[in-house]
Design a protein around this nucleic acid. Structure first.
Lengths: 206, 206
DNA sequence: CAATAAACATAATTCATAAAATGTTCGTTA
DNA sequence: TAACGAACATTTTATGAATTATGTTTATTG
């Protein structure tokens, strides 16, 4: 470890910038948030911020990526838990849905930052999808090991779960579902139960 | 029938306006299409168009609704066909996906009109969802009648299918999948097969 | 020397105003 | 008299100058 404190400072400074940016966006919206204001919120100049982030867009991206990591951490808890995979998958999907719903309701401006990522950063979305699919696959592999399900291709089955529940996890769909007052929890539960019923019965996928 | 020809003319005039609008959008894009230009394309004045449509937005909405009806008609063919429901559901979903993919590739400007509807006209989306769910329910009911599947609640099961395949039919997802080069057909087939496996095995839904 | 901010160039945004498009009214015509 | 278009009011958008924001360079400071 050549410089542990430098790395630590870097991390905490990044976190401070992100927190200052979050506060600005929350109060004034994405459109009216500029880098100088973020810097003022930290009592520094905007030049300093550009030593830690390449651009304003990078700061906003980082806020969304941070939220995605939090979700991933939350989802991972269902991987590391014991129990029937039907319960764990259902818990994971409902937790992801609830988290998004909560963020949309309590922090709409910050939540809205997802739009840029969905439109302009497909690789970030793809990476999130890969991470989530991996977590799902671990649960399914667990179920197969315990003889709870009969799945020949765990990867393909995980892809099926990921695709089938996307509508309950994708930020745009969650926002629309909340606005429409849909019974998303019930709908998501039904989808997960159906998928699990198929896995218990056994399926052959490509 | 008081005035059959008036209604017929009305219908054909509407269709002519929509066709003129489609040509304008295709050539110059949504942003640069105005009502006067659409009227010029028909050799009439914009006032005449306003006798048939309340607003420019209404014209664009109608173009999207027209495409949705075409899709619904296409989907209905799988309801009215004989055969195992697994094949019919798979055929329906793949056909809907292929239609969107085709429209996105060959007519991107007109395809892009869906954005306004998704953002600002949730009731149109909801009506489309209801129509599609009804078609799916008819296929599932058919399968139950023939003893092909064991489903206690056909409505709930149809909702499950609708939600699970939304990611393959929603215009935004189709565009993203095409852009990313995903193997959507295979993914969709796997989802439909999984759902049908569950229905064959039997499921109890809320 | 490492981190910072002042100063700067470039890009984006505002603001005022002109132009054009949307949507309505009403007289004309077939 | 039913449909149309000319003329009109209102809203939106295009235009260009002024301002503000972004991102970089350079000098300063602790």
């Amino acid at each position: 470890m050549p410089e542990p404190s430098a790395s630590l400072d870097e991390h905490s400074f990044r976190a401070q910038i992100l927190e200052a940016a979050r506060i600005q966006v929350r109060r004034f919206g994405e459109a009216k948030t500029n880098v100088v204001d973020i810097a003022r919120g930290l009592g520094t100049s905007h030049t300093t911020i550009y030593r830690h982030f390449r651009s304003k867009a990078d700061i906003f991206d980082a806020l969304v990526v941070e939220a995605m990591r939090d979700e991933e951490d939350m989802a991972r808890r269902f991987v590391e838990t014991d129990g029937p995979i039907a319960e764990r998958l259902e818990g994971m999907v409902l937790a992801l849905h609830a988290r998004k719903r909560d963020r949309f309701a309590t922090d709409p401006e910050v939540y809205g930052l997802y739009r840029r990522i969905v439109e302009e950063r497909p690789e970030i979305i793809a990476a999130y999808a890969v991470a989530m699919t991996t977590l799902i696959a671990r649960i399914l592999a667990d179920g197969r090991r315990r003889g709870e399900v009969r799945i020949d291709d765990v990867e393909a089955a995980a892809g099926v779960v990921r695709d089938a529940v996307t509508v309950f996890v994708h930020p745009a769909h969650v926002a629309a579902a909340v606005a429409a007052g849909l019974p998303s929890e019930k709908m998501a539960r039904n989808v997960v139960r159906t998928l699990c019923a198929a896995f218990r019965a056994g399926i052959d996928l490509d």
